[in-house]
Amino acid sequence: MYLLYRSLTATVVLLGASVLTFGLVYLTPGDSAETILIQQTGHQPSQEAVESFREEEGLNEPIPVQFVDWLGSALQGDLGQSYYSNRAVTELLVQHLPATIELAVASMAVALLVAIPTGVASAVHHGSSIDAGSQLVALVGVSMPNFWLGYLLIIVFALTLDLFPVAGTGGLSHLVLPAIALGTGMAAIVMRLVRTSMLEVIDREYVDGARAKGLRGRIVVYKHALRNALIPVVTVIGLQFAFVLNGAVVIEVVFQRPGLGTLLVDAIFARDYPVVQGVVLVIAVLFVVTNFLVDLTYHYLDPRISLGGGTR
């Protein structure tokens, strides 16, 4: 029942996203056919060439027909050809997606691994120097733009200390600096949130109850308190994923990683619309999927939320 409901809403969201993606192309100024031909051939195309290109690509059909065509083939995994490289968009996506997911997951992991223990420690030792210190670090972390942090990391750890490679993809070592650059901002936000949320939970009676049972301090904090404190945090982590994808675009450029971000930026500059559409659609799908996962986690964390959507 719940899954049915969720899939319904997810479909609606995706449909909306695809309408927007599709419409995006038509909202951009300039005759795309002409621009593309200039780029492909290097000189001003003839009127006939433009016409035949339009005919070929179906650009003369009414827009709704084009949309349905596009959607139909998209559902079969065919997102068209890149205008530019003549490769299938799907192929390009498959090629670039792993690097981005890798980066997103790695930076999420960095963020959570740092943020949760620090946030908890900060709350448990509320008002101590640990608390003050991590608050300060969090402030710096939030205020630092990630591309700037990326360059800083490259200068210090790659160029000066030569601990990690400067750029590109490869083993885990290539992932470390970008993940830190991208994860720091999120770590700072999540840490603050964990702290606030823990502070609220730690005085609750059930925490005392758990202590009265004879549970060790660590179990009380990390099992009984944290589990409750994470409930509001999870929602924010889900939203943060949008920023991670956002930031991935920038960070991929900084570290020259061949991911969706680089692909998108290149495609935008090249007016390679099928690719732009493809990337945006993939991001939308990723978004819907993460939100779905967040919902599931949310329910797992808080049994009071019934799967029907309401609380009782």
Binding site: G209, K213, G214, H224, R227, I231
Partner: peptide, 25 residues
């Protein structure tokens, strides 16, 4: 002290709905 808690000395609180952790069965 911790070892006495729960095993030797146990406690029941006023508001049971608040003392049970809402997220565990």
């Amino acid at each position: 002290r911790e070892r006495y808690r729960g095993t030797d000395i146990a406690m029941v609180f006023q508001d049971p709905t608040a003392t049970l952790n809402p997220v565990f069965d």
